[in-house]
């Protein structure tokens, strides 16, 4: 039997999973939509991964990352649960040990990670608003009647991108509508939108950060060739986009699961595990904490949200 490690990255929009071996080779991977239900999505994901996993491998470590990492960590009994910033950095460093800058734009958040000599030196995440993230792009694509995967190619057609006020999602949308109504071509608007995402990212997330090459661009939006083009143009540097860029978080957490393995063998059989959550509001004091109790096989495994530690 050979050892393998599972990494799961549960984001707001998509859920990613990889199984790697001891030499960081990807044995199998999958990318599905979260669709608002991380538990359902992960059950589906594990079923897909299980089918593709050769029978001579056994899972010796499980790691979870992404916004639902804690919940899914309990479901899968993961041996490591880590934030997505660390996971992305570790994953990227596995394949690009010299990387200096990681640009990441995902569904709901965007981040920048600066590295030097293989360690993180600084990072930032978007704070106030989701303008310029994947969900904004896909909602605008829908409004313009375009498929989000075609969006980037459309932008490349434009010779004259329009200027879009992209400081805030709501303002950007009204500006987009305005530009369309006064007669700008769709490709110019799409190109303007891609450019505004880059500018917005560099002004907000990248503010005060020294961006140095090699630069790697990741996250769902890195599939958009229009955004890549404007990153290259504005930064004046080459931008590396890995074909597995969307899996970097999952790979990173799988690597961390291997480093922190505890000698246990995990089963990928989830169908017989009952997993449930119950929410209620505590009325013990004026804090009115929203509490969430997590049950695994009808057994209380954790409860979250208490300010005083009563639960």
């Amino acid at each position: 039997m050979k050892d393998a490690y599972l990494g799961v990255d549960i984001g707001s929009i998509s859920t990613k999973g990889v199984i790697i071996d001891d030499d960081n080779n990807i044995i199998t991977s999958s990318y599905i939509w979260t669709e608002g239900s991380p538990i359902k999505a992960v059950r589906k994901l594990i079923d897909i991964l299980k089918k593709d996993l050769p029978s001579n491998y056994q899972i010796k470590g499980i790691g979870t990352t992404g916004s639902a990492r804690k919940l899914i960590g309990l479901l899968l009994n993961a041996n490591i649960v880590k934030n997505e910033i660390t996971a992305h950095a570790v994953g990227t460093l596995t394949f690009y040990p010299d990387v200096r800058t990681i640009l990441e734009i995902g569904g709901q958040d965007s981040k920048i990670i600066l590295l030097k000599n293989g360690i993180i030196t600084n990072y930032a995440m978007n704070t106030l608003c989701a303008a310029g993230t994947g969900s904004f792009l896909s909602s605008q694509a829908k409004r313009l009647g375009l498929d989000v995967s075609e969006f980037g190619k459309y932008a490349l057609k434009s010779k004259n991108p329009v200027k879009i006020a992209a400081r805030c999602t709501v303002f950007a949308e009204s500006d987009l509508v305005h530009k369309a109504q006064v007669g700008y071509k769709v490709e110019d608007i799409v190109a303007g939108l891609c450019k505004s995402i880059v500018l917005n990212y560099l002004n907000n997330v990248g503010k005060g950060k020294k961006i140095e090459a090699p630069i790697i661009f990741q996250g769902g939006v890195s599939k958009n060739v229009g955004v890549i083009k404007y990153f290259k143009e504005i930064l004046g540097e080459d931008i590396i986009v890995d074909e597995n860029g969307h899996l970097m978080g999952a790979i990173g957490i799988a690597v961390l699961a291997r480093k922190n393995k505890i000698g246990k063998t995990y089963s990928l059989e989830l169908s017989d595990i009952a997993f449930d959550t119950k929410a209620f509001e505590c009325s013990g004091c004026p804090n009115n904490c929203e509490l969430l109790k997590i049950y695994r096989n009808n057994e209380l495994v954790d409860s979250w949200g208490s300010k005083c530690g009563k639960y």
């Binding site: 916004s67 880590k82 934030n83 997505e84 910033i85 660390t86 360690i119 993180i120 030196t121 990072y123 995440m125 704070t127």
Partner: peptide
């Protein structure tokens, strides 16, 4: 959001 950033800071 605070927890994620703090965790990453600590890891770093």
């Amino acid at each position: 959001g605070i927890k994620t950033r703090l965790e990453a800071f600590y890891d770093m």
